[in-house]
């Protein structure tokens, strides 16, 4: 789908939200839902940043690290990929305190979701690095670059382009997973919706607004990633189209 279609969808979603918000029966829910949405966005952004850091570190450690680091990264990836995000949240929030480590709910949310998505992300990074042509490594070797120099200047910039679409998927996954944090006492968008629904039973307006809000947020992610992809591939594609 083209970027224009996506932007059109986003505009429609926002216009519909705006139009509904002027209705008397919807208006009352807006402040609460927006408050929840802000928390959702905060967790999604910080979680995504953590996921990127963990994904890149784990991939590099698994591919090029010394044995202990390799082992550690593999254990991390398999644990966080192989268990559910919900269980990870619960474990960090309810089990860790039993061992004397108490983290606040917001931090747990960012940690659990970031580590979870980072584990998937490391496979994305690894695949993208491996997709760079072998000749690029050989040319860098012939120019006597060190391994870190090769990675930083030659391999990762090329792998980066291949990473963008799958990372976009992961960010959207993460955004949607934030709904889980309502189960560890955080008042995110999903929590607010549920709470208001229990108090008022206005199911249709509440969940219609929430649906549109999640959609708008994920469209922002998708559009952002498309723009990034277009920009990043400029150097690689330049001239090919001409």
């Amino acid at each position: 789908m083209g970027i224009r279609t996506l932007v059109a969808m986003l505009v429609v979603a926002l216009v519909v939200i705006g139009a509904l918000a002027t209705q008397e029966s919807y208006k009352v829910f807006m402040p609460g839902l927006l408050q929840g949405a802000v928390l959702t966005i905060e967790i999604a952004i910080l979680g995504s940043l953590l996921a990127i850091v963990m994904g890149v570190l784990a991939a590099l450690a698994r591919m090029y690290g010394p044995a202990p680091l390799k082992w550690l990264a593999t254990v991390y990836v398999e644990i966080f990929r192989g268990t559910s995000a919900l269980v990870q949240l619960f474990w960090l929030f309810f089990v860790l305190p039993q061992f004397g480590v108490t983290l606040n709910a917001f931090l747990v949310a960012v940690l659990a979701l970031g580590l979870n998505v980072g584990a998937y992300g490391s496979e994305v990074v690894r695949g993208a690095i491996q997709s760079v042509a072998r000749g690029q490594w050989e040319a860098s070797t012939a120019l006597n670059m060190s391994r870190p120099q090769m990675l930083r200047r030659i391999i990762l910039p090329q792998a980066f382009v291949a990473m963008i679409p799958p990372w976009g998927n992961l960010f959207i996954e993460l955004l949607k997973s934030t709904a889980l944090v309502s189960l560890i006492t955080l008042s995110d968008l999903a929590f607010k919706a549920q709470q208001m629904n229990q108090n008022t039973f206005k199911t249709i307006p509440i969940f219609t607004l929430v649906l549109l809000m999640y959609l708008a947020m994920s469209l922002v992610v998708t559009i952002g990633m498309r723009l990034l992809e277009r920009r990043a591939s400029l150097g690689l594609a330049r001239g090919k189209a001409a």
């Binding site: 690029q136 012939a142 910039p157 150097g235 690689l236």
Partner: peptide, 12 residues
């Protein structure tokens, strides 16, 4: 130094 059959220039 080496020059390769498939050039291997850095495309970016």
């Amino acid at each position: 130094g080496m020059v390769f059959q498939s050039f291997n220039l850095f495309p970016h």
